[in-house]
Write a protein that binds this DNA or RNA. Structure first.
Lengths: 203, 203
DNA sequence: ACCTGAACACCGTTCAAGT
DNA sequence: ACCTGAACACCGTTCAAGT
């Protein structure tokens, strides 16, 4: 693909950030959060362990990139249509995020262990804020509500994952009770937001 | 202090579970979650690393004990008095738990990384259920609500801790904004529970 | 600039042995 | 039963060196 002049070795440019992050994501899926290892990633892409440090300053940076990659897989643009009821849109977005996090066991621990400030994270946050504005919340309340929803989604998944684990990654059995509890809580929460939005604005 | 007969070494019984857990708690306070190490605990109590395995089967068991120890420090009995408004009691309990978790940075990651099923954890859960029953929730709804509150408390603290870190453990600066957001969310949530309790029981 | 080999300072855990 | 010394199979990260 790229030009290979005559000498073989030297700066071979076999890697890039995306390749590393893909390997990390695969490792996360296969071996869980503890399986995401600098040495493991390096081995998977066929390189010496310290070669990773050419692309990332340290492991924490790799994990931040991994989380970003994960959030990029959530298509939040689907929920911007203001003609749909805002409750439905938030519920759908919450379910999507939850599902994406549950697909990669241990991803939540990364989410909760690393400050999430990348572009994809902000994009999801903006979508959420827009929906909440449609719901009639002023900016301050919308910010609080977005944080509250974040807490509920991440907290729910984290606790669910903590209670399972011990088993192999291919735990695909979908616990129906868990999703019911998640939705029950989400709806109580949205009830509370509705009530607050009504008291905030006049009759 | 203890009797030293003639031969010095042998089964010296210098340790017990409590001593180990106290050392682990100190380590958690001083060095954060990653600082809680089998070797570190052993060094702190003056013993070879593998001596710990006489009292705990593995590190995970030590962490479970540590979390239990932590939950034991929350005096939830104070909030059983049914003459006080249930909202106030839940709020006080939530603030207590939150404060206890924030006192030991990294404790939340242990809470979220390990299934919590010990007696102290169950006791806190029972107190919460009792208050929710006083609020007029039937057992099913009370169980869901207790879980929801759990999620909010643990999730809030986890996100807050994740956004700080990087600094030394003695970060005692109390962020006022964080507690306001925590209470705002908690109150939205309680609003939602109130609304649901009213629709559940007749007029 | 990009990669490797070797090393450093750590981990959790196990095993054989001593008392 | 309780503890130690030594070892195993790992970590993340750094450093000097090669191209």
């Amino acid at each position: 693909m790229v030009d290979v002049r005559k000498g073989r070795p030297g700066p071979r440019r076999t890697l890039d950030e995306q390749t590393i992050l893909r390997a990390a994501l695969a490792l996360l899926a296969e071996r869980g959060a503890d399986g995401v290892t600098v040495r493991g990633i390096a081995a998977r892409v066929g390189v010496a362990p310290n070669a990773i440090y050419t692309y990332f300053p340290d492991k924490a940076a790799v994990l931040r990139g991994l989380v970003e990659q994960l959030l990029g897989r959530v298509n939040h643009d689907r929920f911007t249509d203001p003609s749909l009821p805002w409750r439905d849109r938030i519920q759908a977005l919450a379910l999507d995020l939850r599902a994406e996090l549950l697909t990669h066991p241990g991803a939540v621990h990364l989410l909760l262990g690393t400050p999430v400030r990348g572009p994809n994270a902000q994009a999801v946050g903006q979508t959420l804020l827009a929906i909440l504005a449609d719901a009639g919340l002023d900016p301050d309340n919308a910010a609080n509500a977005a944080h509250l929803l974040n807490v509920h989604i991440l907290g729910s998944v984290a606790i669910q994952v903590a209670d399972i684990d011990h088993t192999q990654p291919p735990t695909r059995a979908i616990p129906d009770v868990q999703i019911q509890r998640f939705l029950w809580g989400l709806n109580r929460l949205l009830d509370g937001l509705t009530a607050h939005a009504h008291t905030s604005e006049g009759p």
